[in-house]
């Protein structure tokens, strides 16, 4: 367990001198503020954070975090972060990526980091569009979407990042929203506390190229009816009056009214450790009749890669003895010439 101690850090300690240059109204501001604040409260020393990114709007993030960090190349934040973590497993390593960087050009790294269970925390800002390159469709853009690269509507079926992560074997998958800073802060904390690979998808509004993409879950009027806030071991209830719930009809999840045909006992209870439930929750995305689940979708404890690596090195050292320059050079079959 992490030794939480007071280091008297505040959000300010994580703010750099760099002027933040996202568009006014961009969802990234909220995420930045939330992460700065949360990092200060984790009890981790500031110098132990490394924030790694690729290319895209979200990937400017490291410049605004007064921690160690690398602004890498397009799609490669995850392997860079993997190298940082393996080189120094004591660090708390974070990847900030987007839907283009993380699961288009970097898709291969994403799935492999999840299945390999490398102890890095991946935060993916999903705005369903390419922002920095000025408005092309991304792998999470909906079918039919009009963008600069799809003037007659997208014919590209989208990915659901959470399902992709689950399918790749991610031990920790969560979802949050740029507007809900309190919730996001909690997700960041949970990810920090989880040993192994973690994945947080953050729905993020791009005011310029995809404004309002998440209106139904951000507007006061509609958000309660379209958001399902998950809690471990609690029934999946949502709606303005908390009168709706998720019922499993055979294998098919349905949003139902509680009180008429269904009682609270008919409502599915969330279990972060149940991989079937997590896959069912993943299915809600892109289904207009279902609310969007937020919170920890899956959290299971499995031995992370770093631990395997360090254990193996320690085992071999114990068996063969700590290697020295002398043992290195003289290993194998040797003979003397006199």
């Amino acid at each position: 367990m992490i030794d939480i101690q007071s280091l008297d850090l505040t959000k300010k300690d994580f703010v750099t001198e760099n002027e933040v240059r996202w568009c006014p109204g961009c969802g990234d501001y909220g995420i930045l503020s939330s992460i700065q604040k949360t990092f200060a409260s984790l009890g981790e020393k500031k110098e132990n954070f490394a924030v790694i990114s690729g290319i895209g709007c979200s990937s400017r993030f490291p410049y605004y975090m007064d921690t160690y960090g690398i602004h890498g190349i397009h799609g490669r934040a995850i392997p860079i972060a993997t190298g940082v973590k393996l080189a120094n497993p004591a660090l708390s390593v974070w990847v900030i990526t987007g839907d283009g960087d993380g699961i288009s050009i970097g898709g291969n790294h994403f799935i492999h980091a999840m299945r390999r269970n490398v102890d890095v925390n991946v935060v993916l800002f999903n705005n369903r569009i390419y922002g920095l390159t000025k408005g092309q469709l991304s792998p999470t853009s909906e079918l039919g979407k009009i963008t600069k690269s799809s003037p007659f509507g997208s014919i590209d079926a989208p990915f659901n990042p959470a399902t992709l992560a689950l399918g790749a074997g991610a031990p920790f998958v969560a979802r949050s929203l740029d507007r809900n800073m309190k919730h996001m802060s909690e997700m960041i904390r949970r990810a920090y506390q989880h040993f192994g690979a973690t994945f947080i998808e953050v729905y993020q509004n791009c005011v310029i190229f995809n404004d309002g993409a998440f209106n139904n879950i951000t507007d006061k009027e509609t958000k309660d009816d379209f958001s399902l806030m998950l809690e471990h071991k609690k029934p999946m209830i949502f709606g303005k009056e908390s009168s709706k719930g998720i019922h499993l009809d055979g294998n098919i999840p349905r949003a139902v009214e509680i009180g008429k045909d269904y009682s609270i006992d008919d409502i599915l209870v969330h279990d972060e450790t149940d991989s079937v439930i997590s896959l069912i929750l993943g299915e809600f995305t892109y289904r207009p009749d279902m609310p969007t689940p937020f919170g920890v979708i899956r959290a299971v404890d499995t031995k992370p890669y770093c631990k395997y690596m360090l254990d193996q090195i320690a085992e071999v050292k114990q068996k063969q003895g700590e290697g020295t320059l002398e043992t290195l050079l003289s290993s194998g079959d040797t003979w003397e010439i006199k």
């Binding site: 490394a50 690398i70 392997p79 860079i80 993997t82 190298g83 940082v84 393996l86």
Partner: peptide, 11 residues
């Protein structure tokens, strides 16, 4: 790129 990350971290 993993080697680049490891290098940054001092290996």
């Amino acid at each position: 790129t993993a080697a680049i990350g490891a290098s940054y971290a001092g290996n």
